[in-house]
Computed example of a mutant assay.
Amino acid sequence: MAHNIDYGNLMHQAMRGLIRTVLKDVETNGLPGAHHFFITFDTTHPEVKIADWLADRYPHEMTVVMQHWYENLEVGEDGFSVTLNFGDSPEPIYIPYDAIKTFVDPSVEFGLRFEAAEDVDEDDEEEDEIPTDEAEDPEAPRSDADVVSLDSFRK
């Protein structure tokens, strides 16, 4: 039986762990300096807890901002709860890490995006289908690895 390392799932776990660590620090010390978060999450996730009127208004996904006004941040192993201000109406919400689609801190140009399983599967299928005119030349010299600097992707 073949066994493959599921790098995509492992990366998502690590990224969610990073979010948990960041939020745990904010829970203890508050938001430092100009840091603030835009968190987009799937409102249909079975463990999300939001007010009915928010679920009606955002039936698929919602983006919340943690910046100037938030209260009662409690960070757990599987998710976090926080009270946010929606049009002068404080509302408690609970967001499991598995429901998070994006986590962005624009103050330092940092962001994480989680691909849905069906998006990853479609990408994998596209990568598996290599047209014959793009196939590798067996006579061409081969290198063992291509090294790409991440600095070229930074703004």
Rank of each mutant, 00 (worst) to 15 (best):
H3T: 12
N4D: 12
Y7G: 00
G8T: 05
N9C: 02
L10N: 01
L10S: 02
Q13T: 07
G17W: 11
L18F: 12
T21A: 13
K24R: 15
T28W: 02
L31I: 05
L31K: 01
A34G: 07
H35K: 08
H35R: 13
H36M: 08
F37Q: 04
F38E: 14
I39A: 03
F41A: 05
T43C: 13
H45Q: 10
K49W: 03
K49F: 02
I50H: 02
D52A: 09
W53Y: 05
W53V: 00
D56I: 03
R57W: 01
E61A: 11
M62D: 09
T63M: 12
V65A: 11
M66I: 14
Q67K: 15
H68D: 15
E71D: 14
E71I: 02
L73S: 04
E74G: 05
V75C: 14
G76H: 12
G76K: 13
G79F: 14
V82M: 11
G87K: 00
P90F: 00
A99P: 01
A99L: 02
G111A: 14
G111H: 10
F114Y: 10
A116Q: 04
A116K: 06
A117K: 07
E118A: 04
D119E: 15
D121S: 14
D124S: 09
E125R: 12
E126D: 08
E126G: 01
E127I: 04
I130S: 03
P131Y: 00
D133I: 12
E136C: 11
E136T: 13
A140Q: 09
P141Y: 04
R142H: 10
A145N: 13
V148N: 04
L150E: 06
F153V: 05
